[in-house]
Design a protein around this nucleic acid. Structure first.
Lengths: 302, 302
DNA sequence: GCAAAATATAATATAATGTTATAATAATAT
DNA sequence: ATATTATTATAACATTATATTATATTTTGC
């Protein structure tokens, strides 16, 4: 009776006939010939072991048994259609989920625009963005908790693949400050100013202080912060001046902040990282590429 | 890229490999050869347009994209299994839903035992039992609201198919009553008793009163009720005596009620009805048969 | 680099799914 | 009722999906 397994096509035929009242209509609907549907149904009837339809004035009325099964059958067909649709979206890099860990600065600053533009084009895609300290970001990559990380001061790790970028840095100062008459700002120019800078144990700080030492300029440390964005905020307030990545500086130009290139050229080393063991999804790869591109205009030319 | 439709077998293979870590294991699990699985996957990969697995030390790790689809895929496979299982139950007449409309007496009296036994054997079957007056039961049959009806005084209707049964009737009296010395009770015997009977406009009442008239016996009407069970209750209380269907009488023998055959033989005409337009499901047919059988020993032999 | 294991490919058989042509059946009109 | 028409079933056959076995190619672990 029922040795044959249920086949999807049979269920499709069943529902088409249920919904359109006749085998002929169902065949038209499915875009196949009438005998094809006829046979699908007779096969299904054989394997189910009960009659599928009762005839009533030329209408095919689903039997009680079929009506009992219909909700589940509809659900299966609907789900198959959905899987198919979502696959299409995925193929077009428009569906999936991306988990990003980034420096707190990026979570509020550059990243949101990129993310917004990316998601707008891809209705099925969702994201998790987790801002945290570089150490944690590294841990997350190693533990494969996140697909993509944006960090700095990355020293390399066997489980993490990284792309290292050198962002231009600039000296930022309040809009009315005399520095706005200069084209380039050097340590010597800054010798009389109060300086807001990153932590003393950061790589960027040691580069900066070395530049001052080389030129024998005084370094008036006023304030130690962790993030460039915080420095910019303080510079806006007139608290002091700072050397920060141009990426951060540009966001504050309409908030009473001005900036000029800093000489010598000091790179702000950013790292785009991902777990090496895990093959990234194609949406992730696309996002990583888009993000790297978005930084292109801020890179130090080599 | 993706002209081919998704096939169920491909999804099965995908999940088997996901769950068992290798194509070889998946093949064993599915009970087919390794190359078969290999090709199902490669076909699926072609039609989906993204890679399905990453290799990691001989383990096949589902890609991000696949992991994204897995919940839906599992749901589809689970549903297919379920549909298949339920079909089996239906084939074995063990699943479905039966809607029964019956006289109120049956809802509490004979029907529950039958229903209980029937459902016990068929875990997937559910029922709706709606007790109501004969007029409503008829309406429900015509409107195809119910699959099966138990009624009386049914005069026939073009939209309703019926099986008519004649149930034996007996005279019921309180256990200690002098009637218990008699083998058969006649109208003459009852002439001095107060009688509880059905409505004057019922077919059964007219039969009963005609029997009294034929024998020139006095008919002392005490109380008019609708249901035989109500009459039995009152007889137990010593309110009077009655002629009721044996079916009802037997239920009260352990509640202080006794009964003897009534002569002449008066049939209680029951009708088992169903909508003629609607092909009954096979569980329904089976139940109808079982129910008819359960009445067999109460029928007037012909 | 080599042996063992796992996977992919090729050639081919069988079952599923489609086709067209035609017979059988049910519904409707004369 | 009988003829007409519409619908469904069946037969013969083509194509595609799914399996097989045999064999080549990778990958993994030492």
């Amino acid at each position: 009776m029922d040795r044959g397994k249920l086949r999807l096509r049979q269920l499709e035929a069943l529902m088409a006939v249920s919904d359109h009242g006749s085998i002929t209509n169902a065949a038209t609907e499915l875009g196949i010939s009438q005998p094809a549907v006829s046979r699908l149904l007779s096969d299904l009837g054989d394997s189910l072991g009960f009659s599928l339809f009762d005839r009533k004035k030329g209408q095919m009325i689903p039997s009680q048994e079929v009506r009992f099964l219909q909700p589940d059958i509809r659900r299966v067909l609907e789900l198959m259609r959905q899987i198919s649709d979502v696959s299409q979206e995925i193929t077009k890099r428009r569906a999936g989920h991306i988990r990003i860990a980034c420096l707190p600065g990026f979570a509020t600053n550059h990243l949101p625009e990129i993310v917004a533009a990316f998601l707008k084009e891809r209705p099925g895609v969702s994201m998790t963005i987790e801002p945290d300290r570089p150490e944690r970001i590294l841990e997350w990559m190693i533990g494969e908790q996140y697909d993509f990380g944006i960090t700095d001061g990355f020293a390399g790790h066997p489980a993490v693949e990284s792309t290292n970028l050198e962002i231009r840095t600039v000296c930022v100062f309040p809009a009315g400050h005399p520095f706005n008459s200069l084209d380039v700002i050097t340590p010597a120019d800054m010798a009389t100013e109060n300086i807001i800078h990153t932590r003393r144990d950061s790589e960027f700080f040691s580069q900066l202080s070395k530049a001052f030492q080389t030129e024998n300029a005084t370094f008036n440390s006023l304030l130690e912060i962790r993030q460039f964005t915080a420095a910019c905020e303080l510079v806006c307030q007139g608290t002091g001046i700072a050397v920060v990545s141009e990426l951060d500086a540009v966001k504050y130009t309409n908030q009473g902040l001005d900036f000029r290139p800093f000489a010598p050229t000091l790179p702000h080393r950013l790292s785009l990282v991902r777990p090496i063991t895990q093959q990234p999804s194609m949406v992730t790869l696309e996002f990583m590429e888009l993000f790297a591109d978005s930084l292109q205009s801020f890179l130090i030319e080599t």
